[in-house]
Design a protein around this nucleic acid. Structure first.
Lengths: 228, 228
DNA sequence: GCGATGCTTCGGTTACGATCGAAGTATGAA
DNA sequence: TTCATACTTCGATCGTAACCGAAGCATCGC
């Protein structure tokens, strides 16, 4: 039985709590230093260093040195998707480290998932785009329509530019808190960026949650209505 | 940092080599007994028993007692997809337990992936269905067209019956050996079943590979041509 | 140059969990 | 009833890897 890929290796990599915490933190899309990651992992810097080396060797992380700092990110979108899909599975089986602390509701409302919007707002946005005919949902695949393209150009998204990138425009990503799909891919990233640029929302320092300003909230809900 | 799903738990479950081997074996779709799984894991029955209990508690496996046997399967399609996606990731990063033994080529040509056809033949089938206009590919989603429905009815697939099931008709599943998508979902299962029923192919006893008969091979290649 | 910061490497300790032998329970066969 | 098969539970052993203190590099500011 020595055939096929070795899932035990990456399973073991993700299976250590300290490493899992670091990976989950990096799902926030921000590059973090070894010291910061040691913090989220609840371990000393030395231990974190060995963990990070293992994760990098395993192809889950990439690092970039900058001066005397070492910034770590998830290796690529495939790695991010793997972590997200494990979160989705874990949430579905009730494997939560719940501690429903005060930050929890904010996280469920809107959070960052690698580089796009997730949580209640993420799901709502995709639902609204589908309902308005801006995005076609076929099976579990998504495609931008012509109407969607012009709608989005109107709010300042340069779709042509996104198309020229190698990255898929639309991807669906399963939301672990809502258990439904939200929009990932180049378009998902561009939409979130535009919200941040417009000052409708901002990222928080230590968490993955996204905070909408009162004005941003209003604009978002107006732009992505849902019938109830 | 006690927020979100606990991926470390399932990571650790998959991270043990013996457990990973058992899970990989169950990806073959067959229900296996504890004794058989102990064999594929390379461990004694006692050890396997504790492993299986953990996997079941973790929501990865389901068991069915039948007489004095205990048959284990992957818990559901979500579990199967998780394992497959980890295999895809692992293969992409070169985490192979290669040992390119004699069974390897057969496995790459055609194998079972939970309940549908994978490997070179699986990828070819989907490519051909898309090329002939039987399936629409939108983003990474798949949808059966009207033409596809009538084509498939003609070779004895009862599409109406499949539609009435809760399970999605078409799903794309990333192939770890080919690194491209093949057809999963209810339709993927139905197609493989029909090949087996027609005697075009048969499953092998101890491996996940699917063996096509000379006649079945000919029919399959005729039915799913690809331009080169 | 010097000290300070960020990170890695080394060495030794410790704890967890995988492992198996042996004994115990359930189901089936004779 | 008795024996055999399939599996689980218990108890003890043992290896691995997570962990941290201390020391070693590298880079920055001065």
């Amino acid at each position: 039985m020595k055939e096929g890929p070795d899932i035990a290796q990456i399973g073991a990599l993700i299976g250590d709590p300290a490493r899992a915490n670091m990976l989950a933190a990096l799902t926030g899309g921000r590059a973090l230093t070894a010291t910061e990651l040691a913090g989220v992992g609840g371990i000393t810097l030395q231990t974190a260093s060995t963990h990070l080396a293992k994760l990098e060797a395993g192809g889950l992380l990439a690092q970039r040195k900058q001066g005397r700092h070492r910034y770590f990110t998830l290796a690529d979108e495939a790695a991010a998707r793997l972590i997200e899909s494990m979160m989705g599975f874990a949430a579905g089986r009730g494997h939560l480290r719940h501690q429903p602390g005060p930050k929890e509701p904010a996280l469920r409302k809107a959070r960052i998932c690698y580089d796009h919007l997730a949580g209640d707002y993420g799901v709502r946005m995709l639902d609204s785009l589908i309902a308005s005919g801006a995005i076609d949902a076929v099976g579990d695949g998504l495609a931008l329509t012509e109407k969607g393209e012009s709608d989005l150009e109107r709010i300042g998204i340069d779709v042509g530019d996104l198309r020229s990138s190698r990255r898929p425009l639309c991807r669906s990503c399963l939301d672990w808190s809502e258990r439904r799909a939200h929009l990932a891919g180049g378009l998902g990233k561009a939409l979130l960026s535009s919200f941040l640029d417009k000052g409708w929302a901002r990222r928080t320092a230590e968490s993955r949650s996204i905070l909408f300003s009162p004005e941003g909230d209003r604009q978002f809900l107006r732009l992505f209505p849902i019938e109830t």
